[in-house]
């Protein structure tokens, strides 16, 4: 297991290096000049050039790439072109709220999705199934933006149960994570449903029933544990999706997270921040993949890693 982990982690290094090249090329290929954006709309060309020199954007690309790699490796990450603030500090400040939000959203949506999915699968073709799946389809098709404002309108303004936005206390997590998780819950429900329907047809479920087990145990223990195997892969994918989806939710709920930082960095072509954040997302994606694979091993004894 340790060996496996070490091998997997080592294998990430070349991948990250490739990603660094892509990220750098991508960031520099998109049209837009950070000096111009940072200098502002009313700046004269002289102002823009002053900014360019001050930010060392006049250096050759190769030097800029090496600076980027050096900064990434040393975790220094450089400074934001726009604010001059340490990128490390910016990301460190924003990562917490974003991951917390993503985990909360994932938490409820997975539990809820599994529950609805199993219920729908068990009552496949009946009313409970139809209700569950209609809810799921609405969940998938409802834009986060719209749902977020709707929840805010209802819970914050109509009922006054929660603050509209911002992150000052744990209860502030509720509305944004509800919003963010709705799509995932729907996907999980649909996916779990089909996984369970598939698994319930398996021979070992017949065996479980032939043992005389109560249906509750047959479904929630025997079927669900097996249905989880594909579902876990889905959870991994969805986590990446959540981080992406949080951009909208962060905007609506004034959430001080990575999404807002990235959007603003892109808007101002703040290369240092975009690059660092894209690397962070890539690393996170690789780690989640690894985590999913390890989880897989726990759920599916046929794939235990040595």
């Amino acid at each position: 297991m340790h060996l496996y982990l070490i091998r997997r982690l080592l294998a990430m290094l070349p991948v990250l290096w490739m990603i660094s090249i892509f990220v750098f090329l991508f960031v520099h290929a998109i049209p837009g000049d950070p000096a111009r954006m940072i200098a502002g709309e009313q700046a004269t060309m002289a102002d823009v050039e002053a900014v360019r020199r001050a930010l060392k954007l006049d250096e050759p690309l190769l030097i800029q790439y090496f600076t980027f790699v050096k900064n990434t490796v040393t975790l220094d990450l450089g400074n934001s072109l726009r604010t001059g603030e340490s990128v490390y500090d910016m990301l460190a400040r924003a990562a917490g709220p974003t991951f917390l939000l993503a985990i909360c959203a994932l938490g409820w949506s997975v539990i809820f999705g599994l529950f609805v999915g199993v219920i729908s699968a068990v009552h496949s073709g009946k009313a409970a199934d139809h209700i569950g799946m209609i809810a799921a389809v609405s969940g998938i098709s409802m834009p986060n933006f719209w749902l977020g404002l709707l929840l805010m309108q209802f819970f914050s303004l109509k009922l006054g149960w929660a603050g509209t936005s911002g992150f000052n206390s744990a209860s502030d997590l509720i509305l944004p994570s509800l919003t963010l998780g709705s799509g995932v819950a729907a996907v999980m429900a649909r996916f779990t449903r089909s996984a369970v329907i598939e698994v319930v047809r398996e021979d070992y479920i017949r065996t479980a029933r032939a043992k005389g087990l109560v249906e509750r145990i047959v479904i929630w223990k025997h079927a669900l544990r097996n249905a989880l195997i594909p579902v876990v892969t889905m959870i991994g994918l969805q986590f990446g999706f959540l981080i992406g989806g949080s951009i909208v939710v962060e905007r609506v709920f004034r959430w001080p997270g990575l999404g807002s930082v990235l959007v603003e960095a892109i808007q101002f072509r703040d290369f240092a921040v975009i690059q660092a954040e894209l690397m962070l997302f890539s690393l996170q994606f690789l780690l989640i993949n690894l985590l999913v694979d390890i989880l897989y091993g726990f759920i599916n004894p046929a794939i235990r890693y040595k």
Partner: peptide, 18 residues
């Protein structure tokens, strides 16, 4: 499973793999 028990054709798939 108590009074009447059953074994099946597919031993490879009749036991829960997890």
């Amino acid at each position: 499973g108590n009074d009447i028990a059953m074994i099946f054709q597919e031993p490879m798939t009749s036991l829960n793999p997890v």
